[in-house]
Simulated scan of single mutants.
Amino acid sequence: MKTVWIVGGSTGIGLELAVQLACSGHRVIVSARNTSSLVQLIEQRDTLTDKLTTLQLNATDQSACIKVWQKINRLYGKVDWVFLNAAVYEPAPVIPFDQSKWKNIVHTNIDVVLNPLAAILEHPDFIPKQLFITASLAGYRGLPKSGGYGMSKAALINLAESIRPELAALDCRVRLISPGFVATRITAKNHFRMPALISVEEAAKQIIKKVNANSFEITFPWRFVIWIKILRLLPYRWFFLITKCMVKQ
């Protein structure tokens, strides 16, 4: 049995991941700004009561992250796995340009990872065995209409890559989770056809299946991952020919 902390688990992938891990016998602590949906779920599924608990947290508040992490260590001891999964999303085309929206997306999506990370690194004795940072396939290359979201996720990919060697020296494995399109409250805001869309149940299954793998990346679904990986390798001339067609759609 592992002790797991999920930051951003009241909806979407985080919620389903929390439920599936708890059902597998792990002790799961979920932190989110709004925990009411998770509390309702626990009440409906009595078998999870002793495996799944909630601690309210606004991860954009650094001092709050420190207090919650200290409370978790005090109540449960050393945590085995930490999932930094919180995020915000709004469709943000470049025309008309809404700078405040872009800045909010970027700052929020970076802060909700950096603040818990800072709290964790304050006490090296409690650093988890595995640290999972949720980015997105939208961060692998600049895609039209991805706005500040893609930019923020690209920053998180870079962060995970850069801290992995350093934290390995502290016996902590940094892992990167990069989903494609998953049917959540966030993606419901999109007004375009989302290729290879999968359910939150399938997304959580993919993460759990690879949680003990040796790989750095956890990416899915493969039929979309392959397309993005190809785009990542293309020279700019070919890449921009493809993205120009995406704008016209």
Rank of each mutant, 00 (worst) to 15 (best):
G8D: 11
F132L: 14
R173H: 13
E43K: 08
T243V: 15
V200G: 01
N73I: 09
R232L: 06
F220T: 02
V4F: 06
T54Q: 03
V174C: 12
R193K: 15
T219P: 02
M246K: 04
E90C: 07
P195Y: 01
L241D: 05
G180I: 05
K51L: 13
A59G: 10
G147F: 01
K229E: 08
V106Y: 08
I163S: 04
R237A: 15
P179R: 05
P165H: 03
A22H: 04
Y89V: 05
T35M: 02
T243S: 10
D50Y: 10
E122R: 15
T243N: 08
S31K: 03
F126R: 03
K244D: 14
W69C: 09
I226H: 01
R237M: 11
V79S: 09
C65H: 00
S146N: 05
A87Q: 00
W69D: 02
A92H: 03
W238N: 05
N158Q: 09
A118H: 10
C65I: 00
K103T: 15
L114Y: 04
A59Y: 05
K78T: 15
P144C: 00
K248L: 14
V28N: 08
W238Q: 13
K103Y: 07
S31R: 09
G77S: 11
R45I: 12
E217I: 07
N115F: 11
S162M: 12
K189W: 05
F126Y: 08
N212D: 14
I72D: 02
L75F: 05
T60D: 03
N115D: 12
S31C: 15
G139R: 00
L15E: 03
F126I: 09
Q130S: 10
D61Q: 12
K210E: 13
F216M: 14
M1E: 11
K2G: 02
L17D: 02
I177G: 04
N73Q: 13
V112F: 06
L15V: 11
G180P: 06
N104V: 06
E16Q: 13
L57V: 14
L197M: 14
P128Y: 06
K229S: 09
A183F: 08
S215P: 03
L38N: 10
I208S: 03
M194K: 11
F240A: 11
R232A: 14
D98N: 10
G12Q: 00
A22L: 01
L234M: 14
T60W: 03
A168H: 06
L117Y: 09
Q249W: 01
W222E: 05
V113W: 02
G150L: 06
V182H: 05
D111R: 10
K229M: 01
I133R: 08
Q99T: 09
V106I: 15
R175V: 14
I228E: 03
K248G: 07
A119F: 09
V82M: 13
L55G: 02
I198C: 14
V7A: 07
L176A: 07
E43G: 09
G8C: 13
F83R: 00
I66F: 04
N214M: 00
S63D: 12
V106K: 00
L197A: 10
Q130F: 04
K67H: 07
V19P: 00
R74C: 11
V19A: 14
N58A: 09
A213P: 02
F224S: 04
G147Q: 07
W102P: 00
S24N: 15
Y236L: 12
E161Y: 07
M1H: 10
S24Y: 06
F224N: 03
P93R: 08
P96N: 08
T219C: 05
K103W: 04
S100Q: 08
